[in-house]
């Protein structure tokens, strides 16, 4: 029984990691209906930034964290300006491919700049564990869980209760109409990319002690976080978190209880089954075309 709970907890921690990356997917989709396949790679880049600031330049952890997040926000804006804005309105698949291309590019450039070794940074969460009875949770995992929950809550509130959040939702419904209603669409889109990249950077920094920093880490995690976002119903912030948790828990439990090989496949099997029953994920709105 303790085994099970311990596995469940580490599944939840892993799920929060996926949820955190999935959150980035969902944000951009929610505001612009663009699916950013390079989200994992933005996270990877965030990790490398924080490595540069802390590991190479010797800054304080929190300062480096802040710098990395800001730098990524700027990077996100630049990406939107250069790559996404010219192709907004293209078929969705074209945009998906463009972001896949971006991911390729970032991965290999990061590999060229920072090398292909696993990099590591020292963080306040690297050591130490929280003990609850017999249950053990490492601080680094705890930090991920806490950060994910807080970010989800904050962004959910932002989308639903602030003027900017409403503007973003309007933009995603109909860009032209939003523009005519006086919403600065370009600024909204650029802002959402900045936020999303900042969230990715946060994920990258928090994951640095757990997964190490490597140019392929983004692809590997992104490919798990993406099903998480889909499972939750693309475009739902709580959905991203719950989808992430489901994927994380299933993966961990399958790795522990099922024969070898199931660990990586089980999340996808579950995803396919869910999509068969609910084609738009667990919390996605059902769509019907009006004629």
């Amino acid at each position: 029984m303790l085994d099970f709970i311990q596995q469940l907890v580490s599944g939840i921690a892993l799920g929060c990691v996926y949820g955190l990356i999935a959150l980035g997917f969902v944000l951009i989709y929610k505001a612009t209906e663009v699916v950013n396949f390079a989200q994992g790679d933005l996270m990877m880049l965030g990790g490398f930034f924080v490595f540069t600031f802390i590991g190479l330049m010797g800054l304080d952890y929190w300062l480096g964290f802040l710098f990395a997040v800001c730098a990524m926000a700027v990077f996100g804006m630049a990406t939107e300006r250069i790559l996404i804005r010219p192709i907004l309105g293209y078929p969705q698949f074209s945009i998906v491919m463009a972001t896949i291309g971006l991911g390729y590019f970032l991965r290999s450039v990061a590999g060229m700049i920072w090398g292909t070794d696993d990099l590591k940074i020292e963080t306040p969460f690297s050591t130490g564990v929280l003990k609850l009875g017999d249950l053990v949770i490492a601080h680094d995992k705890l930090s991920v869980i806490v950060a994910t929950v807080i970010l989800c809550a904050v962004l959910y509130a932002f989308f639903n209760y602030t003027r900017m959040g409403t503007a973003m939702r309007a933009t995603s419904e109909n860009m032209l109409a939003a523009y005519y209603m006086g919403i600065p669409v370009k600024r909204v889109v650029s802002l959402i990319w900045a936020i999303s990249a900042a969230v990715a950077a946060t994920a990258g920094v928090l994951l640095a002690p757990i997964t190490f920093i490597h140019s392929n880490v983004g692809l590997a995690l992104g490919l798990k976080a993406f099903p998480a976002a889909v499972l939750g119903g693309f475009g739902s912030i709580p959905g991203a978190l719950i989808g992430g948790l489901i994927i994380g828990v299933i993966e961990t439990l399958a790795g522990f209880y099922l024969p070898q090989g199931w660990k990586d496949v089980a999340p996808y099997v579950v995803l396919l089954i869910v999509l068969l029953v609910r084609p738009h994920g667990l919390f996605g709105p059902s769509m019907r075309k009006k004629v």
Partner: peptide, 22 residues
């Protein structure tokens, strides 16, 4: 001969084609 050059070139090709030669 940098490792991963192929990836960078692939990425650039995809982005350039979608941007400039849809």
């Amino acid at each position: 001969s940098a490792a991963g050059l192929k990836g960078a070139i692939y990425g650039l090709i995809i982005m350039m084609f979608i941007l400039f030669e849809p």
